[in-house]
Design a protein around this nucleic acid. Structure first.
Ligand SMILES: [Mn+2]
Ligand SMILES: [Mn+2]
Ligand SMILES: [Mn+2]
Ligand SMILES: [Mn+2]
Lengths: 157, 157
DNA sequence: TTAATATTTTAGCCAAGGTTAACTTGTAGG
DNA sequence: CCTACAAGTTAACCTTGGCTAAAATATTAA
């Protein structure tokens, strides 16, 4: 009891965009859930790499301050990073990245930079670009990244 | 013991981009965590609105299939949506949106459409654009949305 | 009308990511 | 060398968002 008898592909100018096929639709959400699984890990290793590079040390106090969470939260997340062999450290000492952690940090950093530069090239203010990039970066496919990079390069010529 | 004695702002061509001030950096992550809090709710009300519009009914089977999760998961999330007064329903019956739910759905839908059209206008394939938009939409500020919309309009002329 | 099937809910489980409070360890000054 | 304070860890708790298995309800078809 929706509209016309045989509504296969509604004519132009009809209601709204049709829903994608059920299984394809589901894959959209699956992709998002997958991204969320690694998101925090990526941000942590990226931040640790930055701290090592800029301050020579990655202390959990600094991480807590920069992430805006308590030190207890950092402790727990670091435990997870260690279990995943992304980070190594001795108790009460500075954190370091394993090879695996460095690889992840490098990838994440690169992707983050591409998204951030793209947003600025688009005309977004620095402050907003930084905030949006922090979330968007985890949901941008390689195809889109390539396009963003090309766009930014052209704008900069 | 990092590098030069007085490294305030490292000269051009030095290491890498400096870290933003600690508190500003923290706000980036805070913004992301806030977005994640409402993300699933937004996707649900958006989907429910779509189903109501396109099939006349929003059954939890369909939601489960389209979200790629079990029906039990849908039941629990719907309980939360009802507690938040976004959805109403009688047990074992179809779901409906409250005024509040409709408002949220309308906003989410609009934002989703802007991001999706923008990605397509940029040259991203339909399939990828849909996947990326599903995640990105929750992390795009109003400022960026406005810019995306302008960009899309210009490309379409 | 009843029996089979489909749908929805409930219960019990789990991991992630956050909190506060209390305890332990490290470090710097006197 | 000791003592105060800073930094890090641990314990106990909470919410969200997944899952499976079992129970309850609705629908359909014989
Ligand atoms: Mn990042
Ligand atoms: Mn991020
Ligand atoms: Mn959406
Ligand atoms: Mn979404």
């Amino acid at each position: 009891m929706t509209d016309s008898p045989n509504d296969v592909t509604p004519d132009r100018l009809s209601k709204a965009d049709a829903l994608p096929p059920s299984d394809q639709h589901a894959q959209q959400y699956v992709a998002v859930r997958n991204a969320h699984e690694t998101e925090l890990l990526e941000d942590y290793v990226e931040l640790i790499a930055d701290l090592l590079q800029h301050q020579g040390e990655a202390r959990s106090t600094d991480i807590a301050a920069r992430m805006g969470v308590s030190q207890a939260t950092v402790s727990k997340t670091v435990a997870r990073l260690k279990a995943l062999e992304l980070v190594s450290s001795k108790p009460y000492r500075s954190l370091f990245l394993t090879k695996k952690g460095e690889a992840m940090a490098a990838m994440s950093h690169q992707r983050h930079a591409i998204v951030l530069k793209f947003l600025r090239a688009l005309g977004v203010s620095d402050r907003t670009a930084r905030i949006d990039a922090e979330g968007m970066e985890h949901h941008v496919s390689q195809e889109t990244l390539d396009i963003m990079q090309r766009f930014t390069r052209e704008r900069e010529r």
